[in-house]
Write a protein that binds this DNA or RNA. Structure first.
Lengths: 355, 355
DNA sequence: GTTAGCACTCTAATCATAGGACTGCTAACA
DNA sequence: TGTTAGCAGTCCTATGATTAGAGTGCTAAC
């Protein structure tokens, strides 16, 4: 059997209707709502076919039809293909004024959650590809050393280290210079054993301290890899959708949002997913149990890979019920990505100022 | 009418029972469970009195009784008075090993949420009383200035400022020295206009830059006042309790936990509450609509003011249903506070190492 | 002061019934 | 051959009635 033009119209009408109402859609409804001007009986025949083909499901004998995962998938793919270029009403992003990367991410994710009315998440950029600008050391107290790491993109990391000696001003200055000489301009991936060995050799009696410092630097940058910071917003939007309201499922989902561990796994899987060729916007849609959300049968996930210039790349996404307004979400996400591109693109000079 | 010993026993039995089961408690239950050896009829008479006195409520004619807010209050006060010194099974806190204040707070609040099975929150310490140890400046890029502020208690704050000039190394060093000369050892409250004026005068042509720096310093310290960072954990525990499961209320509560704004208000009100004389542990219990939680009629809040040494003071608390296991929560909180006291108390030398 | 017993009240659960929303099928129609 | 009207049949849901159970308040007796 083939999915001819009429079947497609009917399928889309069913899905659109179901997305709006959440109720199974009957043949009469379609007969009225579509522009096909067919009687409900004809529609019934077509629907019977569509069910046989696996695009729709009948919850029980005397009910209308609801989309199957295959149906959703078809619908989403057709939206993505049409690539609907009408721009949504764009809420002006205040990204330029934000000086702290953390604030920027929080704003973005909040914005996305409010716009879509679903739960949104964003992962902090990975740092291991970011070059180190410079390192600063100082001594906030006896036996302590404050290490400040400035990465490209003006990401600042700091940590207080416990060391076994007390350094005088000159030693601190010396160590700072040695470390910067070797590490400035390198990304984590470019730090080799021989670099480390060289630095250690030059640091003489402070060898142990320097080892602690280097370990801390590597830790700080690497920590962001396995367990990146993830910011979320609108987790409670999940409770707005009746199909997710059975308290147990909702609680599981929301606590996933609270705990972040599960999200981390999710993000890393999404990051590793290859981006399909025709997908110019990096947008990905996972429906039901697809891909990384296998334990969220009733949810769908829309993700995108964002880039803020300076190699700051991460994942941003929206989680909602399978019965999600895909069109709107995809539109919103696409817009957001375009705005980010415009604001942080290579040719922009306003990319400075995130710390 | 007077609350005699027998009435008290009955009242406590009712409340204890209700806390366990969540069901209204009938006279027969008490007749069986209490050690009074009275028939249900006698209990009924007493319960009738207790109801008249406002300690218990009858949801409907043929139901048992549940505690009123007044009843809860009586119960809680009596627990606090008895001050039950049997120590709960203490989970060993890993506070000493934690070098970042943020991690310490997150650990504490998570610990508390898991222990009590309710939602927990903790506010980051206020900073305006903390003295400035020193300030560091550096230049991560053109037109940018990285300001690092080290406060007593080894709290590190950093911010990237946008300035109108490019400074050479020497100027940066000079400015750093000038600022440190005047600001080291001062808390925000001790910074006066004349201090600021002096610094500005000494900074010559870099006057504008220094003004920006000073503003930033004040901002950083002050920001923590009105909108302190608040860490939460276990928000979804709220969904575990049937009386809070009507999705709307739960959503409101959980989203309060997500948004933090409401919590901020709450924390500041709690902070301002005077601590009643006999309350050696700083523990406060707010039941139903009492105090800062007026819009959480079905919840109770248990708070304590913690201190981590070095003047790092904040609020830690647990929010749960009114039908909360007060005894356990109060016990857990008390323990926690004692452990913190022991770990960070004046005579302890392990108070260093938080950043 | 305490207790047994009884009438009364109210809730929550169970069950039967009716109405409504669909479908699938058949037969007629263009 | 495709479309449509109509009808029987299915299943869900809402409604209402009934019942069992829990608990009270009151009275009278101990």
């Amino acid at each position: 059997m083939e999915l001819d033009a009429r079947k497609i119209i009917i399928l889309k009408t069913i899905i659109k209707n179901y997305l709006e109402t959440g109720e199974p859609v009957g043949s009469r409804t379609i007969s009225k709502y579509s522009e096909l001007n067919l009687s409900s009986a004809t529609i019934r025949n077509e629907m019977s076919d569509l069910e046989e083909m696996g695009y729709i499901i009948q919850p029980h004998t005397s009910a209308g039809r609801i989309p199957s995962d295959k149906g959703y998938r078809f619908y989403v793919d057709s939206i993505m293909r049409e690539s609907d270029d009408r721009v949504n009403q764009v809420t002006e992003l205040m990204v330029k004024k934000v000086d702290k990367l953390e604030m920027l991410l929080k704003n973005l994710v909040k914005h996305l959650a409010i716009d879509t009315n679903y739960a949104a998440l964003i992962s902090a950029p990975a740092l291991s590809e970011n070059k180190i600008k410079y390192v600063q050391l100082s001594q906030p107290g006896p036996g302590k050393l404050l290490l400040i790491l400035v990465l490209e993109g003006n990401i600042i990391k700091n940590e207080i280290l416990t060391i076994d000696e007390d350094l005088d001003m000159e030693s601190i200055l010396n160590l700072t210079i040695i470390i910067n000489n070797h590490f400035s301009g390198l990304s984590l991936n470019e730090i080799t054993r021989s670099t480390v060995r060289n630095v250690l050799e030059q640091s003489g009696e402070h060898r142990e301290t320097v080892r602690i410092i280097i370990d801390a630097i590597i830790d700080m940058v690497e920590a962001g890899e396995e367990s990146r910071d993830i910011y979320t917003s609108g987790a409670t939007n999940i409770l707005k959708y009746p199909e997710l309201t059975d308290t147990k499922k909702a609680a599981a989902l929301i606590s996933a949002f609270e705990e972040k561990d599960a999200l981390n796994k999710l993000v890393s899987e999404v990051t590793n997913d290859e981006i399909s060729e025709g997908n110019r916007n990096n947008l990905q849609v996972y429906i039901g149990g697809e891909g990384p959300i296998q334990n969220m049968q009733d949810c769908s996930l829309v993700t995108a890979n964002y880039e803020l210039g300076d190699g700051l790349r991460g994942v941003i996404g929206v989680i909602g019920p399978k019965r999600m307004d895909y069109e709107k979400v995809l539109g919103t996400m696409k817009n957001l990505m375009e705005q980010l591109d415009k604001t942080f693109g290579k040719d922009s000079d306003s990319k400075e100022g995130k710390g």
